[in-house]
Each structure stands twice: as structure tokens, then as C-alpha cells.
Computed example of a mutant assay.
Amino acid sequence: MKVLEFKLKGKAEQYRIIDDMIRTAQFVRNKTLRHWVDNQGIKLVDLYKECAVMAKEFEWAGKLNSTARQASAERAIFAIQRFFANCKAKKPGKKGYPQFKKYTRSVEYKQSGWALSSDKRCLTFKDGFAAGKFKLIGSRDLHFYAPDEIKRIRIVRRADGYYAQFCINIERKEEPVSTGKMIGIDVGLNHFYTDSDGETVPNPRYLRKSEKALKRLQKRVSRKKKGSKSRKKAIDKLGRKHLKVSRQRKDFAIKTALYVVKSNDFVACEDLQVRNMVKNHKLAKSISDAAWSQFAQWLEYFGKVYSKTVIAVPPQYTSQKCSNCGDIVKKTLSTRTHICGCGTILDRDHNAALNILAKGLKAHTGVDLNTVGHTGIHARGQTDLYSLVATSMSKSTG
């Protein structure tokens, strides 16, 4: 599934109608969830029927396109399914029992209730709300895709306006270019990541850099009278600043992940449980600002697009274990240099990256760098090690 996003340009009255559409979608989602709570064991088709009943019972709910009501019901059933999946998997902590939404910011349509203009630069809504025609602002071109390939559109309200996301049912594939290289990646707070070659990428710290401006904008919000227009304007400015930080972080994660995948044929990274790590209140803000989970998701995505191998390995002992001899060298978080009795002296993160690469290779190909020699990556070069792994993989598949 590919998603193309455009900004919607319309009149103030049209934006107010979109707000009504979003509130109606929220109502339908909450109402179907209430129906499930009262009648547990019902299926998605029963929620669809409840949507039809709702449309007759509430005139304003009937204005929303039938497929949009169904999409809202699907949101409820997906939350229910995720809850039961977490229970079945015995996920630690809270299982995510479905909650009623209070601040929904999107409404989703399937293949009806909307239409594109002949030049595919304008979007018109055709349901009972009659939001009208919006101009699509963006650099992407929808002419490359047939109308039946657009399976859904999602209207999203953000701090700086309204956006339309077109969900296109195609699989993105790019021509892979072999580089003969492989790396292990250790993410951190001092550096965004350190790889097994010893190269580092600086941590941009977008939130930290914007913290002073965010505090100033937050103070302005708190000083305004509740319910006033000036307070709403102050909230909008604060929201746009937070949105800018979020977009900077996402852009950095995408570009960095793309570079890593295109530069290597094999990438090993840590399978970090960030949800548990942010429970450390002293590091939670820095960990969230680094966006390790987002980076890992884009690594996995680009690995599929470019047909490269991206594997996540357990992070246990990657910092404590010596990458040369395999001995455990205990360190505190403040100890930044790995010093082993075998004579190995490395930066802590570089040592961890070498261990991550070794774990990834062993999990994927069965090649153990303990038998090949952990220092083989440097002594014989990436190309020789790559040939060894490629031979092992061909034998295992043959």
C-alpha cells in the first residue's frame, strides 16, 4: 500500500464542514464500540448493520457516506482485535482495552462519496455533508494511478491545515543495486547511531533545540483567557511548532534509513522495546526525541522496497560482550570505552555494533563470527566477509 498526501485548499466554511464530518466519524466509531461492549461476541458485519441503524436514527449521521461509516466501525473492530491479540500473546502490562475517542482528527472514505476532477488536481465530496470542491496542493501526480487502484482516502486535520491521504493499492519496488557491504547498527543518545565500521551519525535533537521556543509558546497559551480567540491562536501556534519538530524528526529518520539501506546489502539493528525504555523518566525525553522506533520501521520498509536484508536482533549483552573474544566486560552507562583483557579497546557503541552484526549474521545465515574471527571484518575487508556469507546462504538454500 502506497500513501500520497496532499494539502486541501478550500474556504473557511468548507473546513468547518470537514470538522463536522470528523466529529460524526468519531460518534460512529464510539457508538459501534458501545454496541460491542453491550453485545460481546458480535462480528464486523454486525457493526456494519449498526451503522445503517445509526444513519436512520440520527439524521446528521446519515449525511456521512455509508462507506465512511463502515470505515469508522472498522476502526473500532481493529482496536478490539488488537486487544485480544495482546491478551493471547500475553503481552506484559496493559493490553490496550478499546477506549472511546474524544479527539479524533480524521475521517476515512472508501471508494465512494468522493470524486477526483479530470486533471486529478481537485477533490470533491459527494455525500450528505456536501463539503464541496477542494484544490489538492502537492508535488505528487495521481495520473500514474488508475481510479480503481485508489482504495481509500483519509482526511486528516493537523495544526497547519487539512490534508487528504490517498491509499493506493500498489507495492513499491525499486531496482536493487548490490554493494557487497553489511553493517550492524547501535543506536544511542550521544550519537544517533554507530555502525560496525566505527562511523557515527550525529543525533539531531530537534526537540531539545526547539524546547526554548516551545516553552515560550506554552506560556503564551497559559496566560490567555480560556475560550478566547487569542487563546485559540496561541494554541494553533504551539501546535504548528510541535508539528514542525515532528516533521523534522520523521524526515531525518526517512533519509537516514534510506541511506543505510541503499549503501548496504545486509543491515542488522537492535530490536529495542522503546515503550519500556521511556519508563526511565530521566531519559524518556531524549529517547523519544531520537525516534529509534521510527528509524527501525523505515529501515524495515526500505529493506523490502530495495530487496535488501534488514534483521532486528535482541539487544541483550551487545554492550557488555567483547566483540573480539566474546568475554563479558561489565560496564555502567557512564563507561563509554570497551576495554577487554584480550587487548581490545573500542568505543562502547562501536563494540556493540560489531556484536549486533555478528548476531544478525548468525540468525540469518548461520555464520558465526566467533569461528570466522570477529576482527575479520577489518582484517580481510567487507568484500571477503560478504563472499563468505553469500556462500553460506547459497549452501543453506541449495
Score class of each variant (00 low, 15 high):
residue 2 K to H: 09
residue 3 V to G: 00
residue 4 L to M: 13
residue 9 K to Q: 12
residue 11 K to M: 05
residue 11 K to V: 01
residue 16 R to L: 11
residue 17 I to H: 11
residue 18 I to P: 02
residue 22 I to S: 09
residue 27 F to I: 04
residue 31 K to M: 01
residue 33 L to G: 11
residue 38 D to T: 02
residue 41 G to S: 05
residue 50 E to L: 03
residue 53 V to D: 14
residue 53 V to R: 15
residue 55 A to E: 12
residue 60 W to T: 13
residue 65 N to E: 07
residue 69 R to V: 07
residue 72 S to L: 00
residue 86 N to F: 05
residue 86 N to Q: 02
residue 87 C to K: 11
residue 87 C to V: 14
residue 87 C to Y: 12
residue 88 K to Q: 08
residue 91 K to C: 01
residue 91 K to L: 15
residue 92 P to R: 10
residue 94 K to T: 09
residue 94 K to F: 11
residue 97 Y to C: 01
residue 98 P to M: 07
residue 103 Y to M: 06
residue 104 T to K: 08
residue 106 S to N: 14
residue 108 E to V: 15
residue 111 Q to S: 14
residue 111 Q to T: 13
residue 115 A to M: 15
residue 116 L to R: 08
residue 121 R to S: 06
residue 121 R to C: 08
residue 124 T to Q: 13
residue 125 F to Y: 07
residue 137 I to L: 15
residue 140 R to K: 14
residue 142 L to F: 13
residue 142 L to E: 12
residue 145 Y to P: 05
residue 147 P to G: 10
residue 153 I to C: 13
residue 156 V to K: 09
residue 162 Y to P: 02
residue 172 R to I: 12
residue 173 K to R: 13
residue 173 K to T: 09
residue 176 P to T: 08
residue 181 K to A: 08
residue 186 D to R: 10
residue 190 N to W: 04
residue 191 H to Q: 12
residue 192 F to E: 10
residue 193 Y to F: 15
residue 194 T to Q: 08
residue 194 T to W: 03
residue 195 D to S: 00
residue 196 S to M: 04
residue 197 D to A: 10
residue 197 D to P: 01
residue 203 N to V: 00
residue 203 N to M: 00
residue 204 P to G: 02
residue 205 R to V: 01
residue 205 R to F: 02
residue 208 R to E: 15
residue 210 S to H: 07
residue 210 S to T: 04
residue 211 E to W: 04
residue 217 L to T: 02
residue 218 Q to K: 08
residue 219 K to I: 09
residue 221 V to H: 02
residue 222 S to N: 10
residue 226 K to T: 06
residue 227 G to H: 03
residue 229 K to C: 11
residue 231 R to L: 03
residue 232 K to R: 13
residue 232 K to F: 02
residue 236 D to H: 07
residue 239 G to D: 11
residue 240 R to Q: 15
residue 241 K to F: 01
residue 244 K to V: 00
residue 246 S to I: 00
residue 246 S to L: 10
residue 250 K to P: 05
residue 250 K to M: 03
residue 251 D to R: 05
residue 257 A to P: 06
residue 258 L to K: 14
residue 260 V to N: 04
residue 263 S to I: 01
residue 274 V to Y: 03
residue 274 V to P: 02
residue 275 R to Q: 10
residue 275 R to G: 10
residue 277 M to P: 07
residue 289 D to A: 14
residue 289 D to P: 09
residue 289 D to E: 07
residue 290 A to P: 06
residue 290 A to F: 04
residue 292 W to Y: 11
residue 306 Y to E: 10
residue 306 Y to I: 09
residue 307 S to Y: 01
residue 309 T to W: 04
residue 309 T to K: 15
residue 319 S to I: 08
residue 319 S to R: 11
residue 321 K to F: 05
residue 323 S to Q: 04
residue 325 C to D: 05
residue 327 D to N: 13
residue 331 K to R: 14
residue 331 K to H: 14
residue 334 S to I: 07
residue 339 I to N: 15
residue 341 G to R: 13
residue 345 I to G: 00
residue 352 A to V: 04
residue 355 N to R: 05
residue 359 K to F: 02
residue 364 H to T: 11
residue 365 T to R: 10
residue 367 V to Q: 07
residue 367 V to A: 03
residue 369 L to T: 07
residue 371 T to R: 15
residue 375 T to M: 10
residue 376 G to H: 04
residue 376 G to D: 03
residue 378 H to L: 09
residue 381 G to D: 12
residue 381 G to R: 12
residue 386 Y to Q: 01
residue 387 S to N: 15
residue 389 V to D: 00
residue 393 M to I: 13
residue 394 S to K: 14
residue 398 G to D: 09
